[in-house]
Simulated assay, not measured.
Amino acid sequence: MIIEEKSIYISDIDNNECFEKDGSREIYKKALFFDLEHYIYKKPICIGVFGCAYYDDASKELKLTQYMIENKSDAAAILSLAKDYFYKAKNKLNKEYIVTFSGNNDFTIINYLFEKNNINVKVNEYFKSIDLQREYEKIVGKVIGLKNLEKIFNIARESELIGGATLAKTFYKVIKDDEYFNRMPDEKKTKIMTYNGQDVISLFYMLVSWSTYAHKLDQ
């Protein structure tokens, strides 16, 4: 399994610009930012990439963690790591919220796989859920994709876009062929990890600048 950890220094946050919930504009200090890449065939088969981040107020850093499977045996191992990550986030780091974009799909997948592997965690009940796609819909009355919302928030992606079908096909091959990952070009592995990481990081930047751009959403 590939395990990557990355810290991104955050130079300035204006609480007046941040997303407000439960009477607080410091939700970002108590939140996880979460995104999965996965493979489904009729039912969830595996998590391909687990991506999650949190803001460390002491160091002023966004700390990103990613797990990517290399073969079928990693499918269970990645769930164990995800469980440990969530336990630590809640019980040691005191995180209360989980921020996603159209997160119901990811919650359905990880909750199904957790239950199948006897892990007693329902992520969207373990944390309070904030779905930025739904928050946008409350303002505008229609659904938007993450990449289009990034444009509204002036977020320039560092990664190339990857279609869901392409990711599913890749993880299908990883599950079916233990040697496929070793044959996969390093550039492709990096591209997938960067794509997932960008999705997670974008959630953070949108949350901490929500009030700045929200008035533009219905224009």
Score class of each variant (00 low, 15 high):
4 E>K: 07
6 K>L: 05
7 S>Q: 03
8 I>T: 02
11 S>P: 03
12 D>F: 11
14 D>S: 07
14 D>A: 04
15 N>W: 01
16 N>A: 15
18 C>K: 14
23 G>D: 07
24 S>V: 09
25 R>W: 08
25 R>P: 05
27 I>C: 04
28 Y>C: 10
28 Y>D: 05
29 K>D: 08
31 A>H: 00
32 L>M: 12
32 L>G: 13
33 F>P: 06
35 D>C: 04
36 L>W: 05
38 H>A: 14
39 Y>G: 07
40 I>M: 02
41 Y>G: 00
41 Y>R: 08
43 K>C: 00
44 P>M: 06
45 I>N: 06
45 I>K: 12
47 I>Q: 02
47 I>L: 08
49 V>S: 01
49 V>K: 00
50 F>S: 12
50 F>P: 08
52 C>K: 09
55 Y>G: 01
55 Y>P: 10
56 D>F: 11
56 D>G: 12
58 A>L: 15
59 S>F: 02
60 K>H: 15
60 K>E: 15
60 K>N: 15
61 E>T: 15
64 L>K: 10
64 L>Q: 12
64 L>Y: 03
68 M>C: 12
68 M>W: 02
68 M>F: 09
68 M>N: 04
70 E>V: 05
70 E>P: 02
74 D>L: 03
76 A>P: 04
77 A>N: 15
77 A>E: 13
81 L>I: 00
81 L>D: 13
82 A>Y: 03
82 A>V: 01
83 K>I: 06
85 Y>L: 13
85 Y>M: 12
85 Y>Q: 08
86 F>M: 06
86 F>Y: 11
87 Y>M: 14
87 Y>F: 10
87 Y>A: 00
88 K>N: 13
91 N>S: 08
91 N>K: 13
91 N>T: 14
93 L>M: 15
93 L>V: 11
93 L>I: 10
94 N>F: 12
96 E>C: 02
99 V>N: 10
101 F>S: 07
101 F>V: 14
101 F>Y: 15
102 S>A: 13
103 G>Y: 11
105 N>C: 12
107 F>T: 03
107 F>W: 08
108 T>F: 05
108 T>I: 00
108 T>D: 13
109 I>Q: 02
110 I>C: 01
110 I>P: 04
110 I>M: 06
117 N>Q: 01
